[in-house]
Design a binder for these strands. Sequence first.
DNA 1: CGACAAGTTGATGTTACTCAAAAGTGGTGG
DNA 2: CCACCACTTTTGAGTAACATCAACTTGTCG
Lengths: 239, 239
Amino acid sequence: MSMSRVSPVSTGPVIRRLEGLSPLAPDELALLRDAESSTRMVSAHREIVREGQRVLSGSIILSGWACRVRILADGRRQILGLLLPGDLLGICRHHNPVTATSVTALTNVVLGRAPRPPDPTSGLAEAYARSGVLEEAYLYRQIARLGRFSAYERIIDFLLEVRDRLAMAGLADTDRFPLPMTQEALGDLLGLTSVHVNRTLQVLRREGLVEFTSSMAKLKDVDRLVRIVGYSSPVISFD
Amino acid sequence: MSMSRVSPVSTGPVIRRLEGLSPLAPDELALLRDAESSTRMVSAHREIVREGQRVLSGSIILSGWACRVRILADGRRQILGLLLPGDLLGICRHHNPVTATSVTALTNVVLGRAPRPPDPTSGLAEAYARSGVLEEAYLYRQIARLGRFSAYERIIDFLLEVRDRLAMAGLADTDRFPLPMTQEALGDLLGLTSVHVNRTLQVLRREGLVEFTSSMAKLKDVDRLVRIVGYSSPVISFD
DNA sequence: CGACAAGTTGATGTTACTCAAAAGTGGTGG
DNA sequence: CCACCACTTTTGAGTAACATCAACTTGTCG
């Protein structure tokens, strides 16, 4: 990835993120801007797609947070992964007609229709492919988190991942970013109870590692957090 | 999927599995049989690919068990997912050059070169695509297992998944199938210590739910096991 | 037979869950 | 503006699940 490209200040999260994944031609940028004109709104807690439903067309998250979720027979809930602004949803990697998971809005969400790439070698197609690779990487990270991390580590690792992901869409400072999730939802994501999330967050605050104010998280010592969990950003390619 | 197709008795696990995913033309079957002639052997505990390596070409597992694995900085190990006979490995969904995870042989493994599908609409391409969808479904299941299941439930759910997957390759009876993993490895997969795996297996045996003999598992009451964890096989499509 | 890996057992410690209630927060309508 | 409501966060006390440590036993294979 070129390090010298300067992004214009005014682009939205979608273009920001996808252009960060692969350089886009002017006509592809135009396609993406079109996507932002035909939108679908989903309010918080509503379902976006239901597990087992046929996939009709791909979408992009223009704003808001959503999650893939699985509800167990006895009501337990596991959030499998997050979908943040600029993330893609329902991009058929061939023609798999059925969704493997339900997707639910965590906040109010605005969806756009993901434009079909002009051809398979276009920058947009490449960006979609890399987005898919990243999504897979987040799943692997989530598995390692749940399997081998303590509550304390899970929360730190999660915060660092979210910061990284939001930064790709231009939505995070180096140390501050929105975190519009209840402690209940955090528990469902990290395999914990909301009570234990609460207590662990208190520890992190008391240690001066993080701060939370009105749906914003602030990481007060990123280096230390990174060292605690051995965090590293996923590598996509060496091009 | 057609229910009336009768598989020949003598096909290997690869053809058995892929043909179950999508009907294959005679020339595609020939390609797969070729794959079984140029093989690579990897002995147990050896690495098959290393995280961050460039992906050269896709492989198929002809025999043996492997796993995607992540090692944490302090040596903790998490097995992210299993790769069983007939499973694909390193199929580029576009040209993602880098592996997201290491893959290690759990037993001696024989790999074949995955033939390139004649064209994107061929049965083989469809089978590869569905195999990818399944792999994703197993990741989601693994997340839910680690996040919301007890040790007892994790083991049951895992056994049912393995039985399903091996059955697709013709390697499982309804109630009996190979399970060539140490309790240590099971722990690394299910986010538990080997000691706790051992104790939980004892409970399952005492309850008459499962039996283990020389690397084979026998499920003695599948219905009850299915009900305990609310198990259901992943749905691929409605074609 | 010997050696090494795998499985088993016991005692103890820690992490995280459960249940229940209190305190804080934000939105809505009178 | 205030009263009310639902939701979220916080706190406390007790408990269950799982980890840790260390030893011992069993199996496997040269």
